[in-house]
Simulated assay, not measured.
Amino acid sequence: MKSFSMRATPIALLFALAAAPALAADFSLTVSGIKNGQAAAAENYWNNFGCSGGNVMPKLEWKNAPAGTKSFALTFYDKDAPTGSGFWHWVAYNIPADTQGLPGGANGGSLPAGAVEGNTDLGKPGFFGPCPPVGRKHHYIWTVHALKTDALAVDKNASPALVGFYLWQNRLGEASVTVTAGPRK
């Protein structure tokens, strides 16, 4: 039996990489004014539950979405919320594939035509900035999800957990930035 090798030369690999579409690893998200691991600005905090912020969503920008991306979804999630399942502070989906960012602004700012602002864990749509319990530091995760569908087949009144189920089924890639908030006194 004759054996053969599938080794590629370094030059062949370079040509293959140069011609390859964007990989999920290249997908990136930028949160205006905040680097990964840094604290959210005071203006981003929610103005409720003892917090006194402006509830301003920062500007979000992303680039190098995976090949085949047909739409995006964005989520803002507190993984440290004392609920046993975290807390969804903001959910938006059916964002057109040609969108590369959102301007942010008070109460979440505006979304492109056709996009849906989904329910949060408060049971209603809207942006709810960080507001950790007194004395605790929380980690909040901004995530942009590149999806293989133009629109999620989910009712606009769906829970964030159900939207998350559909995100997982349709995701080609994701990019995240984690910000911290607290501890507050």
Rank of each mutant, 00 (worst) to 15 (best):
A25M: 02
K185Y: 13
A39E: 14
S176A: 09
L167G: 04
V56Q: 11
P160F: 08
P125E: 05
A113Y: 10
A97H: 11
Y77N: 08
A39K: 10
G126N: 07
T75H: 01
P10I: 08
P112S: 02
T75K: 01
V144R: 01
V56N: 12
F76D: 08
L152R: 06
G182N: 06
A41H: 15
P103G: 15
S5V: 14
H89Q: 14
S110T: 13
A19P: 11
T69M: 03
N107L: 10
R136S: 09
S5C: 14
S85Q: 15
G108R: 06
V31M: 02
A24R: 07
D78E: 10
K63V: 12
T30H: 13
P96L: 03
G105T: 07
N47Y: 03
G101T: 03
G129W: 00
L29A: 03
K79Y: 05
L172M: 03
N94L: 06
A42R: 12
V179D: 10
A115C: 08
F87D: 13
D26V: 07
Q38T: 09
P58H: 01
R136N: 08
G173D: 03
K124V: 13
D98N: 09
F87V: 05
S110G: 08
G114C: 03
K63C: 09
G164A: 04
K156D: 15
A22K: 06
V144G: 03
S5W: 15
G104Q: 04
N170T: 07
A153Y: 06
M1P: 01
T9Q: 13
F15V: 14
P132A: 11
S85L: 10
A67E: 11
P125Y: 04
T120K: 00
T178S: 14
G33K: 05
G37P: 12
D98F: 12
E61Q: 12
S85T: 15
N48Q: 10
T149V: 14
